[in-house]
Design a protein around this nucleic acid. Structure first.
Lengths: 234, 234
DNA sequence: CGGGCGGATTACAATTCGTAACAATTGCGA
DNA sequence: TCGCAATTGTTACGAATTGTAATCCGCCCG
């Protein structure tokens, strides 16, 4: 997979350098331009995935440029501007910019915002399967399936999945019964806690736990539960 | 075309009102929630196009919620937070938020940023997508026809097509029964849910699903359905 | 060492879902 | 207008999952 290409348009050389340094360190390819005329020539040679555009250009009205870019280019357009008024931001976004960052900016935030833009573009294809690995198991939450170390598959139900998710999201930490009820959306009190017990019990059997010596879901008498075991999400 | 639906999650009633007023004036449908628990229940009823999430929630860690939303929901996620540090913004965006707005905010900018998000998303959807490929099938919605891998053709009806389209538009994602009913325009409640079951059942038989071990349309008891399988629209 | 209490497990009941059979609706052509 | 066929909704019943209640087991403290 090729690294995404970011085009930078800003008349101040220091700003250009700061941006290109940060972006290349973050794994992007960059091309920098100081004037709108060069920028447009560069666009014809290679289509960037993201355009960072400063509005205060010497040779062209920045907003008009943004508008044309939005219509003609498929790239994500991010304005970087010293003009901080709300009205400036609103018109910039209305004209087709995908984001508006105010100077002075932090390069780390620029990187994060670029990533957010690129993510949506290819989000569906790249969406990582929501899976967790622990103690030889692989839990696939998008398929409601547990895969054992030997490859055998054990389906789990929605109720069991909710409990399992809570455990896997905070392993090695005490989870009180009240917390778990809250997460499961159940009204605390009367007889719902018994339902929770049953859910945990059924989950334990699916995980092949030895009731007398549970290795994964440990009961803390009078307090709650702890999920032991290294969890790696991917 | 239905107006986009924006879900608002913020514990301060004034903020909720300010947002919903501005958004509805701008032509959006809104639903407001004060607590994460209610918000998640609302998500099961109808799938919003945009989620505005405040990080300072009383009953749940906002960032964890954002992360789950990013993975499980197809909506655009915009954080609205009083935490203004760069580090906060970066982690919020890295966890899957599409934008990060700092309190105090101007409603006009919120509207503009929501529009910017929807614009990008809709650009994809606006290409008239009439055929989808999945699991060896080709679904041609303009001809109400399913073409199998061996070339044989199976016609599907309008009702079946509606269900199929919903599945193919959000594959590998839980679709609650309420969401599906809303998409199908049916009044929830009495006996319409049985009609939906029947539609799905008939679609399953046309797809040649094994009732005991469905490979494509999986039922999540008590929750909804998931369409497994890679989908490519063209 | 025994009682009380909290949790685990089992059996059963309630809910939810699948599908087959049937009824209602729609659309079309004679 | 009538009748036929295709589609869709409705009802009924069986199967699967989940909650509830009853019982059993084990921990903690005296």
């Amino acid at each position: 997979m090729k690294p995404p290409h970011v085009a930078i348009l800003d008349d101040e050389p220091e700003v250009r350098r700061m941006l290109s340094d940060a972006l290349e360190e973050a794994g992007f390819r960059t091309t920098s331009y100081g004037r709108a005329a060069e920028f447009e020539i560069g666009l014809k040679r290679s289509a960037p995935d993201v355009c960072l555009v400063d509005l205060g250009l010497p040779d062209r009205d920045g907003l008009a440029l943004v508008h044309r870019l939005a219509l003609e280019s498929g790239a994500a357009i991010i304005i970087i501007s010293g003009r901080a008024q709300v009205q400036d931001r609103v018109t910039g976004l209305e004209l087709g910019a995908d984001d508006y960052i105010i100077k002075p900016f932090d390069p780390a935030e620029v990187v994060a915002r670029i990533r957010a833009r690129l993510r949506k573009g290819r989000a569906e294809a790249e969406r990582v399967l929501q899976t967790a690995r622990f103690a030889g198991w692989v839990a696939q939450f998008d398929r409601y399936l547990l895969v054992a170390a030997d490859g055998s598959e054990v389906p789990f139900s929605h109720a069991e999945g909710e409990v399992l998710r809570i455990f896997l999201e905070s392993p090695k930490r005490l989870i009180t019964r009240a917390q778990m009820q809250e997460s499961l959306g159940g009204a605390a009190g009367d007889s719902f806690d018994r339902a929770m017990d049953v859910r945990i019990s059924r989950l334990r059997t699916k995980l092949g736990e030895d009731p007398k010596n549970p290795r994964l879901i440990k009961t803390i008498y009078g307090a709650g539960y702890i999920f032991l075991g290294e969890v790696v999400w991917s």
